[in-house]
Design a protein around this nucleic acid. Sequence first.
DNA 1: CTGAAAGCGCTAACAT
DNA 2: ATGTTAGCGCTTTCAG
Lengths: 355, 355
Amino acid sequence: MNDLRRAGNGNANANANIPPALKRRPQMEDIAKLAGVATSTVSRALAGSPLVNPKTRDRIVELARHLNYAVNVGAQNLRLGQNKVVAVVVPYDPASRQHLSDPFFLALIGGIADALTESGHEMLLSRVPASDLEQAAYAVESGRAIGLILVGQWHHHDQLNTMFMRGVPFVVWGAHLEQQLYCTVGSDNVLGGELATAHLLRRGRRRVAFVGDTGLPEVAQRHQGYLRAHAGAGLAADPALLCPSPFVAEVIGGDVGRLLAAHAGIDGVFAASDVAAMAAIHALHQAGRSVPDQVAVVGYDDIDSAAFCHPALTTVRQPLDIAGKALVDSLFKILGGQRAAPVQLHTALLQRASA
Amino acid sequence: MNDLRRAGNGNANANANIPPALKRRPQMEDIAKLAGVATSTVSRALAGSPLVNPKTRDRIVELARHLNYAVNVGAQNLRLGQNKVVAVVVPYDPASRQHLSDPFFLALIGGIADALTESGHEMLLSRVPASDLEQAAYAVESGRAIGLILVGQWHHHDQLNTMFMRGVPFVVWGAHLEQQLYCTVGSDNVLGGELATAHLLRRGRRRVAFVGDTGLPEVAQRHQGYLRAHAGAGLAADPALLCPSPFVAEVIGGDVGRLLAAHAGIDGVFAASDVAAMAAIHALHQAGRSVPDQVAVVGYDDIDSAAFCHPALTTVRQPLDIAGKALVDSLFKILGGQRAAPVQLHTALLQRASA
DNA sequence: CTGAAAGCGCTAACAT
DNA sequence: ATGTTAGCGCTTTCAG
C-alpha cells in the first residue's frame, strides 16, 4: 500500500532539459491572475457558464488555449463527486503467465474502447490474476472507476457472485450460468456448440474431436452443445476424443497432434476458439491430413483472420461489433440502478471452406 | 450537487434495489470514527507508517478490510501531486471510421499493458482522430496521465514535433524519420522491406507487387527497402505493381484481385502487414493462383496467426514481446528528464511456407 | 504515538 | 457579472 503511493513522478523534478518546456502545468489561478479576475470566474468561463461576460470569457478562453491549459480532471472530479472512468479488466492465468493475446479478446477490448469513447467515457485497462478476481473490485473501491467490465476466461463463479453482493457494479463477458447474480454478456455457447457439431455430423463425420479446456464455463457449454448435437443425431460422443487444451496455440498444436496419432479415425474437429482451430488445422496438415476432405474443422469466434486463412474457417460467429456496446450498455444499466439481465448475443454458424 | 455525490460513485440515485449494497463508499472519516481515532491516524496506519501503534494499526487495517475500504486514489493523487497513469492513444482514421482492429496493434497494446502493469502503472486507453493527433496531449494537460504512448498509423509528423516542443512527454510506435524531435520505437522498416523483397528476388521472383499505403511513414520505409532490394539485385521495380491499399483486409482483397487481373505476370507479393498478406493470399487463391508455387507472398509483423494460417506466412518479425517494454522504458526515460533516442528493434525475416 | 489544521486544484453556493 | 468562501477526500507538517 505504501509503495503504491511513493515514486510520484508527477513530473515533479523533471524539468531537466530535453522536452524543451517541462515546467509546472498552469492552473486556474495562473489564468485568473493573467486575466485579472478571480478563479471562480475562470472556472465559470471555461465551463461556458452564461453568467460570465462574453468579453471576459473570450479573453479567458483565449488565455487558456494559449497556455495549453486544461482543467485538472482529478481535482474537478473530486470536487464534483463525479467520474467517467470504466475499468476493463483482463484476468490472466498466473500459472501459465499467459499474456493478453487471443485476438478475440483483444478485438473485444477494441470494441469496448469504441463503445466507451462513444459515450464519453474513459477506459482504464488492467489485468488481475484469475485466481484472485476480486482484486478487480479495487478499481471501484479506490474511486478510480465507476464500474468494471471483466473480459475473458475465468473459473471463479463464486468470487463474482460475492463481488456482486458487495455492491460492485460490473459486467462480464462470458457464459450465463445457473444461480448467477451478476450480469453476463456472451454468445449462446450451448447453441453455438450444437450448431458447429451438428454441421459436422450432418456432413457424415462420425469421429469428431472436441478441442478446448472444459474447465472454463464458456467452453464447457460449447461442449455441452457438442454432446447435445450427438444425442440429437442419435450418436454417442466418444469421451476419448476430448482434447482439453488451454487457449494457447502452441500447446494445442502438440495436443491435437497426439490425439490424431492415438485416434486415426478422427474425421472432424470442433475447436472452441478460432485460434485453436487454426492450430488444429496446422497440426492436421503436419500429420498429412487434408482439411476439409479427410478431417473437417469448425472453430468458434469468427475472428478477422478466420476468413482469410486457408482453408477459410467455418466457425461460430460471436458478433464482436455489438459485443462491446452490449457490455457497456449493461454496465450503465446497472450503474443506473436497474437490473441488467444476462444477454445472449445472436449466435450463428458461418460456413466457409474448412467444413 | 449534493445528491450527485451521495450514492457513492457518480451514479446518482443508484441505491435502488439490485446490487444489494450500492451505498456510499466508506471514507477515512468513517473508519476513524469507528476506530475512535483521527483521520490522520487512519491515513498513517493504512500507509503502514511506523509512527502508529501496532495495535491501533491492526485494528484500523482490519476495519478497512472489513468495509472494503480503499484509499481514494484521486484525492490521494491530488494531495500528493502524483500520478501513475499512462495514456495509450490509438489514432483512428475518421474518414474510414476504421476501428481499432489490426491484430498487430491490438497485440502491441497488450504488450504495453503488461509492461505498464509490471512497473506499477495504470493504463488509460483512448482514441483520437488521426487528423488531430494533438488532441492526445489533453490526457497530459488535464493531469489525467503523466505521459503518452501513441500507437499505430499516423501521417502527422509535424503535429508530433509541435507536441514535443510543447513539452508533452510521449513516445510513438512508428518509423524513425529525419528531423524528428520526438522518440519513436519500431522495427527497422527499411531493412525489413529489403529483407522481405530480397528473399523473393533471390527465389527468382521478378514481378513482385507491393501492397500497402505508402502514405504512412512506416509503410513508405518498407517500400523504400523494397526498392533498395531491387536495386541491389540490379533489377528495376515496376511502379505499376504498387497497390496502395489501407490496412483493411476487405479493401486489400479487392485491390489485390484487380492488380492480379491487370498484371498476369505477378509472381511475388510483399505486403506491408500480415493482415494484408493474408488478404492477398485469399485473393490469390480465389484467382486460382497457388501460393507459393505460382505467387510467393511475404508479410510483415509476424502476428500470432501468421504461423497457423495456410500456407504459413513467411514474414518480417517485429518483436512484439519487447516492443511494449521498449515503449514504456523510453517514456519513463523522458519522464525522468533524459533524452530518449529512437529505438529500432531487431528486425528479421522469418521464413515459413508462403515464400 | 496521536490530533488539529492547512491545502492539493477545482466548483458552487452565497454574497454583492 | 464577479469575488469570497467553503470543502470534495486525502496527507502532512506542526504541536503536543
